[in-house]
């Protein structure tokens, strides 16, 4: 008996330790970022840092304004959503309700494979296929907001498809049958009853997609041109927060380095907001169903 109880206690300790590891990781990252980033922001001036349109760390005196990069990240993410959300949701609807079984066996793993491709490979694909295509057909250098949006739009597809599909499958079949029994076509039954009923799950997928898009680095850095500017058109270059960090971290020192970490803080806050809205959606849908 006593040995059993001891064993149980020991196992409890092990589970507690493993659980605490991931939490500790988040907390430590948080502390590291804010500890290194916030003082730099203070030194530069919060308004100057967040609202400044001039990023020239090598000038004397240097200026560290990341406003253009914040806008860049938002534009690129919005572009990815415009492309990824309709395709993703419609694909999920197709997989969940219309796809013949034999085709499903091919399509489903294919969408999952999309999630497994390393982001640098997406970057190559963008660089070799999409950038030249844009250069030839729309002008400019090709490395642009549009190129980044297209590639990111593809990259967020597996997230949106996967989560939306399971949300669609969780809708009670009785809604579908009820609509059919009223003489509605299959399409109408799906789009007017099943899809609306799954909207909180679908929304969760979209929010996760936003998180993935805004945090993506390696793919976009290859194809977005990286000019520090607010793009005036889709074919203009753009620089995201993530790209800013990865491009300059290697050679930065002193305040420049700290300013890059502070850029990471801003990114972190974005992700935090996304996670919080995700939680809000979840709790709202639970309340709704319960």
């Amino acid at each position: 008996m006593r040995i059993n109880r001891l064993k149980e206690k020991a196992m409890q300790g092990v589970f507690f330790l493993t659980a605490i590891t991931s939490i500790a990781a988040v907390v430590i990252i948080c502390i590291f970022l804010f500890y290194n980033g916030v003082p730099a922001m203070a030194k530069i001036g919060f308004g100057e840092f967040l609202g400044g349109q001039q990023w020239s760390p090598r000038n004397v005196p240097a200026s560290y304004g990341i406003f253009n990069m914040i806008i860049g990240s938002i534009y690129v993410t919005a572009g990815a959503l415009v492309i990824g959300v309709p395709i993703g949701i419609l694909t999920a609807v197709f997989l969940a309700r219309f796809c013949p079984k034999s085709l499903y066996k091919v399509l489903k793993p294919a969408t999952e494979l999309l999630a497994g491709i390393p982001s640098i490979v997406y970057g190559f694909f963008g660089l070799m296929v999409i950038v030249p295509f844009i250069r030839e057909h729309f002008g400019g250098s090709g490395s642009s907001l549009l190129a980044a949006s297209i590639v990111l739009g593809i990259m967020i597809l597996p997230t949106i498809i996967g989560i939306s599909e399971s949300a669609l499958r969780a809708v009670p079949e009785s809604y579908y049958e009820g609509a059919l029994a009223l003489g509605a076509t299959k399409e109408r039954s799906v789009f007017k009853t099943i899809l609306p009923a799954s909207k909180s799950g679908v929304l969760a997928g979209v929010v996760l997609g936003i998180g993935r898009a805004i945090g993506e680095t390696m793919a976009v850095v290859l194809i977005e041109g990286n000019q520090v500017q607010i793009p005036a058109s889709l074919t203009d270059g753009v620089r995201t927060l993530t790209a800013n960090i990865v491009l300059e971290m290697g050679y930065s020192t002193g305040l420049h380095r700290e300013a890059l970490i502070a850029t990471g803080v801003v990114l972190f806050v974005f992700i935090l907001l996304i996670t919080l809205s995700m939680q809000a959606i979840k709790s709202r849908s639970e309340k709704h169903n319960g």
């Binding site: 009670p172 009785s174 809604y175 009820g178 609509a179 059919l180 029994a181 009223l182 003489g183 509605a184």
Partner: peptide
């Protein structure tokens, strides 16, 4: 669909949308 418009159905378990 016309058939199901003419022949309505009420299910065992109420299924309001």
């Amino acid at each position: 669909n016309v058939l199901r418009k003419r022949v309505g159905m009420v299910f065992q378990k109420a299924n309001p949308f």
